[in-house]
Design a protein around this nucleic acid. Structure first.
Length: 309
RNA sequence: CGCGGGAUAGAGCAGUUGGCAGCUCGCCAGGCCCAUAACCUGGAGGUCGCCGGUUCAAAUCCGGCUCCCGCAA
């Protein structure tokens, strides 16, 4: 049995953790995840998704160090690390320092949500949809000292559909990871797979996203914005200013062009609120959400808001 | 007790000097039309989130409560 320690925090890591827990080839000596954080409107202290997946009777040790330098964590990881075949890190949320990468026998294995070297960084799924990529996928790789830079063990492609939003692609990639990771990890540890170095000249990068990044810029084309709206749904979401408030745009489609409209102009067509974008391209808003209100369709929005045009 | 918006017909919203509850849709019936998601006529559908208070009279003023949501984290 291979001994591993699992580092992971968010939903993306859950299918992989479950797959490894259920697989007799692996013994999980511990799960390292972020501390419980205040979440939501009333800042309720909430455990990370990964922690919630671990049944109490599994007897798996859970560690939630605030910092990797915490003395108790260091003592534990340095004790258990050298007997590990590998650490598996998926969506953990911290950069692992070199001393930690050096602990396990075969290093640290990472799953990244893109086909590296494309989309290194913190938001590969949103970046792929926003860029109009036709396919995405997961990369199982060795972690080295640079971000998403290590040698590739294996990649699994996943097509991006025209109606994919951030969460749907996220979920498929997470499932894909859970489905393939155990076998690939096992083969790698058996020495059956020789990792290959990335083509670093082909690397592209994406940033950590914040809510501000979701502000729609109507000097872009409707095609670009429609992709962005899907990519950023549900996180970080896209929005525009209207009536002194923030209007979240949940979904939209591309309408027939109209060169008489100027970029950013609001109008309606067939009971659907529309926005003019670059070069006369038109975005038809199908679903949106005003501040303080629940999500509604574009037609519903127009019934109450007479000042859209 | 982090800041803020909201709850009125099936949906989206108006409605404060307190005085019979409205609009745009949808729905039902009928009409017009070759036809229609278009147009015309009529109709059904509300304990105005809940509890209490003030008043001759409360959607509206006062107090308490529940739920939904935007921001922030």
């Amino acid at each position: 049995m291979y001994k591993i320690v699992f580092f992971g925090t968010s939903e993306f890591a859950v299918p992989s953790l479950k797959a490894l827990m259920d697989d007799g080839r692996f013994e999980i000596l511990g799960v390292v995840t972020q501390p419980d954080r205040p979440v939501g409107r009333h800042a309720v202290l909430t455990p990370p998704a990964v922690k919630l997946e671990i049944p109490a009777q599994a007897g798996i040790q859970i560690l939630q160090p605030e910092k990797l330098k915490d003395e108790s964590f260091q003592t534990w990881i340095k004790g258990v690390g050298p007997e590990c075949d590998a650490f598996v890190i998926i969506s953990y949320g911290k950069i692992l320092p070199q001393w930690l990468l050096d602990l396990p026998k075969h290093g640290v294995i990472n799953v990244h949500g893109s086909l590296l070297p494309r989309w290194r960084g913190a938001s590969p799924i949103q970046a792929a949809i926003a860029a109009g990529d036709e396919k995405s996928g997961i990369t199982i790789m060795q972690l080295d000292a640079y971000m998403d830079h290590g040698s590739i063990i294996r990649q699994i492609e996943e097509p991006i559909h025209a109606d994919d939003i951030g969460s749907t692609l996220h979920d498929r990639l997470a499932e894909s990871s859970g489905k393939y990771l155990p076998d690939i990890l096992s083969d790698f540890l058996d020495g059956k797979i020789q990792p290959r170095e990335q083509d670093h000249t082909a690397a592209t990068y994406c940033q950590t996203l914040a809510r501000e990044d979701g502000k729609l810029d109507f000097t872009k084309t409707a095609t670009q914005l429609e992709r962005l709206i899907r990519a950023y749904n549900p996180w970080p979401g896209t929005w525009m200013d209207f009536d002194g408030q923030r209007l979240k745009i949940i979904s939209a489609r591309i309408g027939a062009e109209d060169n008489a409209k100027s970029a950013g102009q609001k109008f309606s067509r067939d009971n659907t609120p529309c926005l003019a974008c670059a070069n006369g391209t038109i975005l038809e808003i199908t679903q949106l959400q005003p501040e303080g209100k629940s999500a509604m369709t574009g037609a519903e929005f127009l019934r109450g808001k007479r000042n859209w045009e």
